Simulated scan of single mutants.
Amino acid sequence: MAASFSFDVVSEFDRQELVNALDQTTREIQSRYDLKDTKTTLELGETAITINTSSEFTLEAIHTLLQTKAAKRNLSLKIFDYGKIESSSGNRVRQEITLRKGISQEIAKQISKLIRDEFNKVQASIQGDAVRVSAKSKDDLQAVMQRLKQEEFPMALQFTNYR
């Protein structure tokens, strides 16, 4: 059996699910009594979400709403990187939430080092913002997946292209 099996470790999210979660959050803001008159806006950009609202108190309520809606849509809360709260015109506050996508070089190096140290028969190679893991045995790959799920990384990890 000379065949080799592999999978990719990536950090991605479903953009359409994020759009749906933002739509649900916006609808709930418009219907909730305590948030209705805050003139809150949620804008989804290419790499960030911008929240503009009346106070820090309502901003915290919107964070909770957004996290709840995202969790219900199977989005990891690790994709949200909350920026600094800024004062905006007219006694309003604004915050930018950066969306994390891809594995940084430092984290990719940590993952490949962990695999090299703990699994002798498994190879890991960094390919852009993903890590390719390959081995001759599917059981070894399953063990690597289980080990990576136990580790706490600053981003959500998914396993794709399992062959």
Rank of each mutant, 00 (worst) to 15 (best):
F80T: 02
T64Q: 10
I115E: 00
V133G: 01
R15W: 08
N161K: 15
E151R: 02
G83N: 03
Q146A: 14
Q16F: 13
T68L: 11
F153V: 05
S4T: 15
E28F: 09
Q16H: 14
D140F: 10
I51R: 06
E28A: 09
S89Y: 09
Q110S: 12
F5K: 04
D8E: 15
M1Y: 11
A156V: 07
V131S: 01
S11L: 08
E86I: 05
I97P: 03
E12R: 15
S76P: 04
L42M: 07
S87F: 06
N74K: 14
A130F: 03
Y82R: 05
A130W: 03
E118W: 07
V133H: 01
N20W: 11
A21D: 06
R27G: 12
E60W: 03
D23I: 10
S11Y: 05
S104V: 01
K36T: 03
S76K: 03
D140T: 07
E46C: 08
R132S: 05
S54P: 04
A70S: 14
L157R: 07
D140P: 10
S4L: 15
E86R: 06
Q127C: 05
K136W: 05
R32I: 00
S4D: 02
F13A: 06
N74P: 00
S88E: 09
L157N: 04
F5E: 07
N52I: 14
V19C: 08
R116A: 14
V9F: 05
K138F: 12
T38F: 06
V131P: 00
A156E: 13
F5A: 05
K136V: 04
S137R: 13
F159E: 06
Q142F: 12
Q158Y: 13
L75I: 06
D8P: 01
T47L: 08
Q158D: 12
D140K: 09
Y162R: 14
L59F: 06
S76D: 04
L148M: 12
K69V: 02
T38C: 10
T68E: 10
A48P: 00
D129M: 02
Q67N: 09
I85G: 07
R147Q: 12
T41Y: 04
R92N: 07
Q123T: 13
Q142N: 14
K72S: 08
K39V: 02
D139Y: 08
N74F: 10
A108Y: 00
H63W: 12
S88T: 08
S88H: 09
E43M: 13
K149T: 11
I115S: 00
S4H: 15
T64P: 02
S104T: 12
V122P: 01
